[in-house]
């Protein structure tokens, strides 16, 4: 279990990294934290001929500008837990980050790496979808802004093209009267989830004015639940009973059925986690207001 041969290139600037990635095309991969890519390489399930090391490029800031929070592709997971811009604006995001792997993984893994790896039940893809995130992908030809909801094509598959790499993720800053929560169920703490659900709410006068729901475990990628989101509008924060709407949502799901979980379990779990995330988001909203 050692990687096949490749050439290593350390990029000193984004331009250089993108030029190298363009040159190598399908044969090249950027490497940042290596927490997802290197296991695949050691198992020889990934065998890039060229690795472009982007760790020296900066791309590791979290900034607020023009109503969005921009997270550099190389921001390591543990950073969020001490970052007021995230803590203050995205409680669901913080819940989700706490559930990622283990301390060493959180210290080294990057948001760009996690999104590009596209594990079906990883936390960050779901969280970016939940928060209406846009993924900024750059190539030698320029930048593309890709809504997170259209970024993932399947398990371990994204719309990124050869020569392209993620440089940042932008999350719109939610209004002050907002709330959120994320809940996941994993066999062991730190494992990829069997299913997970994140909820965000905007509210006024004790009622939900806008909701977002994203879940994983129901398909090959995380997904939003637009009908459910609509149904949650007007929900009383003090009585967050949305069982019927959630049931209507889970009935539409067609989750995978495999050795680790049956389809009916996954479907029920998504519903249950959605209820829990919603209840927590509502009670957080009540506490804040």
């Amino acid at each position: 279990m050692r990687p096949s041969e490749f050439e290593y290139h350390k990029a000193d600037s984004l331009e250089q990294a993108l030029a190298l990635l363009q040159e190598f095309g399908d044969e090249g991969r950027p490497i940042a934290g290596g927490q997802s890519l290197v296991p695949m390489m050691n198992l020889r399930l990934a065998r890039p001929a060229h690795l472009v090391d982007i760790n020296g490029l900066g791309l590791d800031t979290i900034e607020k500008k023009d109503g969005v929070i921009r997270i550099g592709a190389l921001v390591r997971h543990e950073r969020y837990l001490a970052e007021p811009l995230i803590i203050d604006n995205f409680p669901a995001f913080i819940d989700g980050v706490r559930a990622i792997g283990h301390p060493t993984i959180r210290r080294n893994g990057t948001i760009g790496g996690s999104l590009a790896h596209a594990d079906p039940t990883a936390e960050l893809p779901l969280l970016c979808m939940l928060h209406d995130g846009e993924i900024i992908a750059a190539s030698a030809g320029g930048e593309r802004r890709l809504p997170a909801t259209r970024f993932f094509e399947g398990a371990y598959m994204t719309v990124l093209e050869a020569g392209e790499m993620i440089v940042a993720v932008e999350l719109p800053v939610p209004p002050a009267s907002s709330s959120g929560a994320f809940v996941e169920m994993a066999e062991r703490r730190g494992d990829f989830a069997i299913a997970a659900c994140g909820v965000t709410l905007e509210h006024a006068r004790g009622r939900v004015t806008r909701a977002a729901v994203a879940c994983s475990g129901a398909g090959q990628t995380a997904m939003r639940a637009p009908q459910l989101e609509e149904a949650l509008e007007g929900l009383e924060l003090a009585h967050p009973d949305a069982a019927a709407a959630i049931a209507a949502f889970t009935e539409t799901l067609n989750p995978p059925d495999d050795h680790s979980a049956s389809a009916d379990y996954r479907r029920a779990l998504v519903g249950q986690l959605t209820e829990q995330a919603l209840a927590t988001a509502c009670s957080r909203a009540m506490e804040a207001s």
Binding site: G34, V38, P39
Partner: peptide, 27 residues
């Protein structure tokens, strides 16, 4: 395990724990 799942190979890189099976010496 050589796939980043057991922690046996943990060393400190610039003072912080890092899995040396998920790190290329070239980096």
């Amino acid at each position: 395990c050589a796939h980043g799942a057991c922690g046996c190979c943990t060393v400190h890189l610039d003072g912080k724990p890092r899995l040396s099976c998920l790190t290329f010496a070239a980096q």
